[in-house]
Structure formats: C-alpha cells, structure tokens
Design a protein around this nucleic acid. Structure first.
Length: 427
RNA sequence: GUGGGCGUAGCUCAGUUGGUUAGAGCGCCAGGUUGUGGCCCUGGAGGUCGCCGGUUCAAAUCCGGUCGCUCACCCCA
C-alpha cells in the first residue's frame, strides 16, 4: 500500500494502458462523428480566471468550482465546463470567421464535490457547438451529432433516448396555460427540473409555496407532464401563444425524423437543465433503463456570448461526459476487449546474433512496424513466452544455423507455421 | 456539506466465541540444462490486517476517532 501522502486525490482517476485504451475508444468515436458532420476541433486552457464562471454560469456551478488563489494572487479555477471558454475564444475571433461556426472539443473538466457513481471531480466531456446560426436546423444537427456519437459506440434506440423540451414552450404553457405568475416562473422552472425525483405530495406543496400556485393551477401544471407528444400538448392548450412557441420544437422533431433518428427522440417537458444560460430547445440523453445519470445534456444558449463580452451571437451545443457513458457501455458489454499487439518479436539464439537482431528490428521500425525483443540473453522458450505475452503476430528467429545460410525463421504465432526467408525480404 | 455501509497481498476474497511466525486463487518473478509461445510442475517476492488511540495477559477480530471507498441526499458538467 502506497503511503497516503502519495495517494491519488479523491475523485481523480489513473489511466493505466487498459483504461486509457477504453478512453481512447470513446475519443475516437467522438472525433470520427464530429468530423463526419464537418466540425473542427479546438481547445483552451484547463485553468481559467474565476470570474469567467462566477459571473455568468448561474449560482449552481459556482459552489462546486475547483478554485484557488495562484502564486500571483489571481483568483483562478479549473474549468468546470467548456462553454464559457468557448464563448471567450469566439468573442475574440468570431467576427472574422465564416458562419456557422461548427466546433468541438474534448476537454478535461473539474468540479470540487463529493464523488459518487457517475460523478467524479474530473471527467472528459465531448463538447459540440454550432455558433452563429439561429435556425432550428442547427439545433437538430447538434442533437443528431450526440445521438450518432452514441450509435458509433454501439448504442441504439433500444438503449438510449433523447428527452427534449423548449424553454419558450414551457414558459408559454406555464404563463398562459397554467397561469403561473411572473415572479413564480423561476421557482416553477427549478421545481419542474426535479419533479420526477420527488413524491407527488412534496411536489404539490413546493409548487404552492415556492411558485405561488393555487391547487387548481398545481393540478394543471402536473397534468402537463402526463401529455405525450407535441400534438397532445397543443390539443390540451389551444392558446395562440402555445401554438406559436411549439412551432420550433415541431420543426426540430421533423428534422430528426427526416434523418431517421425519430426513434431516439421524445418530448418531455420536465427537461429544463440547471444552467441559467439556456434560452430555447434543451435536451438530455438517458439510458432507457433509467439506471444511470444523464449521459449528455445541451441546448440553445443565444445570449451567452454577449454576456461574456462578445458580439451577440446565437449558439447551440451539448456536453457528453465519459464517466456515465463508460458505465453504460461496460454494462452493455460494448467496451472493446483490451489486447496488446506487436507486429514482430525478434528471438535471438546466442549473443553473437545480437547486432544482426538489433539491425533488423530497427530497419523494421523505420518501415513503420512495431517490433520488440528481449533485453537480456534468455532461453528461447522464455523469449517465445514474452512474444506471446506481448501479442506478437510474428516471431523472427535469428540463430547460428540460419545466419550461416543468410536467412531467418519467420513464425506466424496464430497458425504456428514457419518459413525461412532472407531478412531483406521483411518489411 | 449531511446521513448509511464498507476498509486483510497488485486483484478477488478466507480468516472459526479476541489466543502461537496472517492464508488461498489469479497475477508477478525465477527455475523445469541458450532452438520454439499458449498448458503443466516447482520455488520465490509481496501485507506494520487503511491510519491513530483505547479496552485486554493477548486485537485483523471489541470500542472511539481519523482518512479512504461506496450508496443516498444536496446539486448537476
């Protein structure tokens, strides 16, 4: 047991080769899908000025920042999310860039809070954003990227679902359909976000107390969440403002249907998202069994760029973390088997073959092959054992008998077949 | 931040009502005579039983604290 002084910090992970291989598997899928949609990769610093988060992200995030004072007396924070950095980066360059801007990143993000399942103090998050386009097509495109990211990893509509809502629609429903007073809106939004996680009685009490609703209004509000689909919602609430606010979501669903992704998507008015900067369509992706936390969340945030001092610019995007997704993939046996591989392992019989072996190995490496050999003079049996352990596809044997004839033995480790070939023919 | 459960080798665990030098499997290393891997056999390394303190003739075993892990709450990337 290592001294406790050297222990890894709580909520942080080590990535030995097997773990790193799994992480790389996720990153490969994410990058492949993002590029397929024409997105460009970017990054920013992992450490940012504290003010980048304290001002605009909403109070929720501030309490859990991994922040401290640096040696220059600056108030700094490890980044808890990527969007403020993105807004800052774009604020400096967006004006000169062709629109729409389609960017993605895979930052490591940090939050100071007690860890539990699916929630560490550090994680990697696939961030995908479209900036400079307010058409709902962009919203649909972003959700399609998220869904395809999961499909690329082997998950289908039977495994995951996207729950989508629109803050503008919910606002219209609450104000004009239910009659929530203007000063009760924020409280109502906050409660709706967590209504499915609390008993109905508690929800009723809180809606009455915090949002100032009478019992009839509480009934009307809770009834909203029993409605399935946009058509039911519009039928239940024929108000003109509702019809108007439902139009973008209607088009959104149509676009996703046209892409063949309709099976993944369902309207769910309880999806609000905690971050204060969302302004329109919002969504979260969950495993169908509902055992895990949200895999991904995102939506439209049209005002964020101007809030951090940039030009006003519409934006829509999402973040997908590696922790919950990793749990889901492992649970569904979709994590690839880890295996070591090597193109060649060079077995040396007798120290006098050493120089020839090193020469051959290096020539093969120059040609792009992975090659390893034993560092010490060891028995042939041990050398073959190492070749097997390291996953060598072929073993090249250099021995005195072969050297005399100017050949080497080439053994295929899978089939066990051997042939004698001149070393110049390899590579 | 609040509460519950847990804490024995790298990993998975066993350790009988507290009682002599704390065990197994897997993994690792070495060997089974420098010409052939997967199997097998033999041997070895590796633990101050998370840490500190208390009770006792005696503590891995009981008690307290602390740290860590974990689940839930809070909150949500």
């Amino acid at each position: 047991m290592a001294s406790s002084d050297f222990r890894r910090l709580p909520g942080f992970r080590d990535f030995p080769p097997e773990e790193l291989a799994f992480r790389a598997h996720l990153f490969r899928a994410w990058r492949a899908v993002a590029r397929r949609y024409g997105f460009l990769e970017y990054d920013g610093p992992p450490l940012e000025p504290l003010e980048l988060y304290t001002e605009k992200s909403g109070d929720e995030i501030v309490g859990q920042l991994y922040n401290f004072t640096d040696k220059g007396d600056r108030q700094v924070s490890l980044r808890p999310e990527m969007t403020p950095s993105l807004a800052r980066i774009l604020g400096e360059h967006a004006r000169s860039m062709p629109k729409p801007i389609r960017w993605f990143s895979i930052p490591q993000l940090f939050r100071y809070e007690r860890q539990q399942r699916g929630r560490l103090r550090e994680h990697f998050q696939w961030n995908v954003d479209i900036v400079g386009e307010d058409d709902v097509s962009a919203d649909a495109e972003v959700l399609a990227v998220a869904i395809d990211g999961l499909r690329e990893l082997g998950l289908g509509a039977e495994d995951v679902r996207a729950r989508v809502s629109d803050r503008r629609l919910l606002t219209a429903l609450l104000r004009d359909g239910v009659g929530v007073p203007e000063d009760g809106m924020d409280a109502a939004f906050a409660l709706i976000d967590k209504v499915e996680r609390m008993p109905e009685e508690v929800a009723r009490e809180k809606l009455a107390a915090d949002a100032g609703l009478d019992p009839a209004q509480v009934d009307a509000l809770l009834k909203l969440f029993e409605l399935e689909g946009l058509d039911d919602i519009r039928a239940a609430h024929p108000e003109a403002s509702v019809a108007e606010a439902a139009a973008p979501l209607d088009a959104y669903l149509g676009h996703l249907e046209a892409m063949g992704l309709g099976d993944f998507v369902e309207v769910d008015l309880t999806i609000v998202r905690g971050l204060a900067y969302y302004t329109g369509i919002v969504f979260e992706l969950f495993d169908r069994q509902g055992e895990l936390r949200a895999i991904c969340g995102g939506g439209r945030y049209d005002r964020l760029l101007e809030l951090v001092g940039g030009d006003p610019m519409p934006a829509v995007g999402f973040g997908m973390g590696d922790v919950v997704l990793g749990e889901l993939l492992r649970e569904r046996a979709l994590a690839p088997d880890y295996e070591r591989t090597l193109d060649y392992y060079v077995v040396v019989i007798g120290e006098e073959q050493g120089p020839a072996a090193r020469g051959l190995a290096h020539r093969l490496r120059d040609a792009g092959h992975s090659v390893a050999y034993e560092f010490r003079d060891r028995s042939v049996g041990k050398q073959f054992k190492s070749a097997g352990t390291e996953g060598a596809r072929s073993v090249i044997v250099l021995g005195p008998e072969e050297a005399a004839k100017g050949v080497v033995v080439l053994r295929d480790m899978a089939s066990g077949e051997e042939e004698r070939v001149p070393p110049e023919s390899l590579g």
